[in-house]
Design a protein around this nucleic acid. Structure first.
Length: 655
DNA sequence: GTTAGGG
DNA sequence: CCCTAAC
């Protein structure tokens, strides 16, 4: 076998190097377990095991595509068990665990079934299970310190076991030997790139090795239960039956479990469900968890939004307001002009122009307080409400001038001017140039509205609806009565590429970060713009798929055709991102100074800082053990873990 | 001040 | 691209 991940399967060698006392013929076994509500280890159910296996299998396949033919080797640091050879060996196991497998360590080789089992686990696992209070499962420095869990597995005795002796769990990902020690920094970097798909300038071999190992192991993203890895294999572990076997001995290298809080488990459960698309039977899960919280289904749901003010207003008031006005106007119905004029008149009441700043009454507060218009906008334009409601001014007038001088009047004149074609030739194609530097400063000069450059469109618009003809807020009525803005600045391919790169680097969602770094020179692109563009790109990329959906053709294309390569990249990143914790909102990953601050911030939709804490916890405990990364991957998703590691690196460099 | 989502 | 609730 070859390739980075196709770790050489050399049982003999592996065993020789292993500190474990297993015989060469001894199968390597992983015992899949979960931490119950009390922090005890409980064997995973058959279904869970099965799923894990499937996931591993899938992962393996993915990994196999990697193109690296290096034999990797890593030092003991990453080992999940004390290793004399100073190597971490992943031995592929063939078939079932052998009953005769010698035990390692003095521990009992059997996992007690049922009740007894619980207590037994309790005895053995305390130190392994991270405790929220102690915050540490085992000493990272001493592999020895990591409690060993002996999982008694005797698959052969369990006929019901999904995995029978003949089946050969094929986890090549975990099989074989990893040798990184002999690689040069350059090689390591290359391997790193091959593994993570991104470059690294880090020259610290240790770090590189660690990350690579992490990357390799983490590709197993099965979000099920906590699992114990007994040597190298995840063996299906039935419930009571399986753990009953006595001879299934096996060395448990490390128990990967981070925390035992119920909510954490619940979270895992969720994740699991999401990841596999299969729902673990809740009853089963709960039983095992010992959690009574049946409704802990707090899936990181979408943000729930309450109706917008606008909507509420619309509903509460029979009279159409700005929104209604728009619609009406768009219809171009003569009879409705009146109503629209009403609206505008009203609008005028709420808005006013202050010397320099446009102000408006705060409709929400109802106090009529004048609020600098600018306070709520980021760009250079007045909000649409205002704009749309404004009637045009005599065409000859400069927009800004008009506004200031005739704010109220203009509204009254709209009827007359409604039919006018207000061609904003005078509008300055401002945004074509470099973005307004001071746009965000104190009060925005009202002249901002002049920014529209698409005169033609304005023209068209104004012809269609006098209402939209206002200054530069070029809105174009759409077929369905909606309005579309024309303050458009097409995304260039270059920008798109930058965006994609940014997402690749920082992950989707960290828009401000991306903007700061990749769009520093494009001040006219806000983080929101990036987000929007990404969304569109994603849509485009999906639409591009040969799904045969009519969507493809129907969907409008970006002004600048996006190369398929980019779109596919977008999909990739989107997938990756899906794995990553959506909560990753830390703004520190960028690597700019604030490395001292809390590195992890959990984002919205997640239980406080729990995840971040868990991650820290995990790192504290297992940072030296590659297995831990696997666990982290399980819990947080590989992407998240990867970022975390990058972050650590950054922190250390900066620190 | 940012981000997510709806428009 | 805008707007704004939710963070």
């Amino acid at each position: 076998m070859e390739a980075v991940v196709d770790i050489v399967v050399n049982e003999e060698a592996a065993l020789e190097n292993c500190s474990t006392s297993q015989k060469t013929s001894d199968p390597v076994v992983y015992q899949l377990v979960r931490v119950d509500g009390n922090g005890r280890l409980v064997p995973a159910t058959d279904d869970e095991v099965k799923e894990v296996e499937n996931l591993l299998e899938d992962d393996k396949n993915k990994v196999k595509t990697a193109e690296t033919r290096q034999t990797l080797e890593c030092s003991t640091d990453y080992g999940c068990r004390p290793s004399e050879s100073n190597k971490v060996l992943f031995k592929g196991s063939e078939g079932q665990p052998q009953p005769e497998v010698p035990e390692v360590g003095a521990e009992k080789s059997n996992v007690a079934p049922d009740p007894a089992m619980d207590s037994e686990h309790e005895e053995r696992t305390p130190s392994m299970v991270s405790n929220a209070s102690d915050g540490r499962a085992c000493q990272s420095g001493s592999p020895e310190g990591c409690p060993k869990l002996l999982g008694g597995l005797d698959e052969s005795k369990t006929s019901s076991s999904p995995i029978d002796t003949s089946s050969k769990p094929d986890f090549s990902l975990l099989n074989g030997e990893i040798r990184l020690d002999n690689l040069s920094v350059k090689d390591l970097q290359e391997t790193f790139r091959a593994t993570f798909g991104r470059e690294t300038s880090v020259k610290d071999k240790q770090w590189l090795k660690r990350r690579i190992i992490m990357g390799l192991t983490n590709s197993c993203d099965f979000s099920t239960t906590t699992f114990v890895i007994i040597d190298n294999k995840v063996v299906k572990q039935g419930k009571e039956e399986t753990c009953k076997s006595e001879d299934c001995s096996v060395l448990v290298d490390c128990v990967v479990t981070s925390a035992m809080e119920n909510n954490w488990l619940d979270k895992q459960n969720e994740i699991h469900s999401i990841a596999t698309g299969t729902k673990i039977e809740s009853s089963t899960f709960q039983d095992n968890c010992g959690s009574n919280d049946a409704d802990t289904e707090e899936r990181p749901a979408k943000r729930v939004r309450k109706p917008t003010k606008r909507y509420i207003e619309e509903i509460s008031e029979g009279e159409p307001r700005d929104f209604g006005a728009k619609i009406i106007s768009s219809v171009n119905h003569p009879a409705q002009n009146q109503s629209s004029s009403k609206v505008s008149a009203r609008a005028i009441q709420n808005f006013g122009v202050d010397r320099r700043c446009l102000t408006r009454k705060d409709s929400l507060g109802g106090s009529g307080i004048q609020v600098p218009y600018v306070s709520r906008i980021r760009r250079s334009r007045p909000r649409e409400n205002y704009m749309t409601l404004m009637k045009f001014q005599p065409s000859g007038m400069g927009t800004s001038t008009r506004l200031e001088e005739n704010d109220v009047e203009s509204s009254k004149q709209h009827d007359n001017e409604g039919g006018n074609e207000v061609i904003r030739n005078s509008l300055s194609p401002r945004w074509i140039q470099e973005p307004p530097v001071a746009s965000s400063e104190s009060c925005e000069p009202y002249t901002e509205k002049n920014t529209t450059q698409l005169e033609k469109e304005v023209k068209v618009k104004s012809m269609e609806s006098y209402e939209t003809s206002s200054d530069d807020v070029v809105t174009v009525p759409t077929a369905n009565g909606g309005m579309r803005r024309k303050h458009h600045r097409p995304w260039t391919l270059n920008e798109v590429v930058k965006l994609v790169e940014g997402v690749a680097k920082y992950g989707a969602g960290r828009w401000s970060e991306i903007k700061r770094v990749a769009f520093a020179s494009y001040s006219y692109r806000t983080s929101v713009d990036l987000k929007d563009k990404w969304r569109n790109l994603l849509r485009a990329s999906l639409a591009e798929l040969p799904t045969g959906n009519g969507i493809n053709s129907s969907r409008k294309q970006a002004s600048v055709p996006i190369p398929a390569s980019i779109l596919s990249r977008v999909r990739e990143l989107a997938d990756l991102n899906a794995q990553a914790s959506p909560s990753l909102t830390s703004s520190k990953l960028a690597g700019h100074n604030d490395s001292n601050k809390t590195v992890h911030e959990t984002g919205p939709g997640h239980t406080g800082h729990m995840w971040g804490q868990k991650l820290h916890l995990l790192c504290d405990c297992y940072t030296r053990q590659f297995i831990s990364f696997l666990a982290m991957g399980v819990e947080f998703g590989i992407e998240y873990v990867m970022r975390f590691c990058f972050e650590l690196q950054l922190g250390s460099l900066l620190g």
